[in-house]
Amino acid sequence: MEMRLEYLGSTLVAKLDGELDQSCAAEIRERIDNEINLHGITNLVMDFNNVSFMDSSGIGVLIGRYKQIKARGGKMLVIRTQPQVDKVIELAGLKRIMDFD
């Protein structure tokens, strides 16, 4: 999985590309967390437009980042999820907790 990071003031936009599973989950979360700490990020947008697959490893990534951002008083937004990704997110009940487009 590839990830491109962009900044809009104190908002970090993480654009994911590929398949999000256990093989890349740790790297993704470490990179985002580093950016959050390094750049004083308060808000996080995770763009799933190019994510063709996600399993429950991705749920862990989303919940973990949500907790970080919330602890900083910021907002997290998950956008442009494909149907397969959406179904996993729905099952995990994340739609009741986080913001989606």
């Binding site: 399993d55 429950s56 490893s57 862990g60 919940i63 179904k87 995990a92």
Partner: peptide, 15 residues
């Protein structure tokens, strides 16, 4: 690993 969601069997059961 605190970021394993614990949803694996739930996904298998549901899908």
């Amino acid at each position: 690993d605190e970021e394993r969601s614990g949803m694996g069997f739930t996904v298998m059961q549901s899908f």
